[in-house]
Amino acid sequence: MPGPGQWQDGWWSGARRVESTNFGPRPEGSQVSLVLLHHISLPPEEFGGPYVEQFFTNRLDPAGHPYFATIADVQVSAHFFLRRDGEVVQFVSGEARAWHAGLSAWQGRGNCNDYSIGIELEGSDSQPFAPQQYLALWPLLQAICGAYPITAMAGHEHVAPGRKTDPGPYFDWRELARRFPGLELPAQVTA
């Protein structure tokens, strides 16, 4: 797995690059300081297949599954997607503002998309993540922390409480805290 320094224009060499058009510029003077963790499965509770990539690149066929018709016109993205087998896919440069957090706030500061990097893990609230995902996540987080002045990591559930639940009850926050002891984490994670 490539090390922390292997970046070019916000693209990490350890990821397969699949460019999304669902992004914009970060506000001038905005520094990336937060990593936001999410989970996604398309269709819900099903893993594998091309659907997340299609969704983040506006190519999801609304007729492909009844659920797809409800989200086919939504334009979202994340910087990274970690498949169940540990493959890392990057959709948006870390220098750009991906559309992953929506209405959100961290420590009283709104618009988390402006200053965060979003990582989607293929998963759901109802089952554990695969060990291969963690084996890929730790070097990815190390690489992000080496490239950007990251001060905190949180879940979508922490920046949009009541609206979002991801990365969910199975995410290993204790191991994340052990591996990244200097970072601010949500209070309920460190309690």
Rank of each mutant, 00 (worst) to 15 (best):
V52L: 00
L42E: 00
A96W: 14
P25M: 15
A187I: 09
P25I: 12
P186H: 02
Q132L: 12
G123S: 08
P128H: 06
L37G: 03
S13K: 12
F81A: 01
L141R: 03
P167I: 03
G110A: 15
R26Y: 11
F171M: 03
G155P: 01
N22D: 12
D166E: 14
G123N: 02
E87I: 08
F91D: 02
P131L: 09
P50A: 02
H79V: 04
I40A: 03
A105T: 13
P186Q: 05
H65I: 05
E122T: 04
D73W: 09
E87V: 13
R178S: 12
D166G: 14
I119D: 00
W138R: 04
E28A: 14
P149V: 06
D9I: 09
Q90A: 07
P66D: 07
S104L: 05
Q8G: 11
D166V: 13
P181D: 09
G94L: 05
P131G: 07
Q188K: 10
Y170F: 14
A101E: 02
S30A: 14
R26N: 11
E175R: 15
L176M: 15
I40M: 05
S116C: 10
G123L: 05
L42K: 01
S20Y: 00
A69N: 11
H65Q: 11
S124P: 08
G146V: 04
F55R: 06
G162A: 09
I40Q: 03
F47Y: 15
V52F: 00
N111T: 11
Y51P: 01
G146H: 06
L183P: 08
P66Y: 04
L121C: 11
Y148F: 11
D166Y: 14
A101I: 06
W11I: 03
L60T: 01
E53G: 09
G110W: 10
A63K: 13
A63Q: 15
H156A: 14
W11F: 08
G14T: 04
Y67E: 11
P50D: 08
S116V: 03
L42F: 01
R163L: 14
F80D: 00
L185G: 09
G182H: 09
D114L: 10
L42V: 02
I119G: 03
G5N: 15
A152Y: 02
N58R: 14
A187Q: 13
H65E: 10
P66I: 08
E157A: 07
V74S: 12
V92P: 00
P169W: 07
E95G: 06
A177Q: 13
V76P: 04
T70R: 15
F171R: 01
F180P: 08
H158G: 11
L121D: 07
F47Q: 05
P131D: 11
V18K: 05
F56H: 02
L176V: 12
F171L: 07
G110S: 13
F68N: 00
G94P: 06
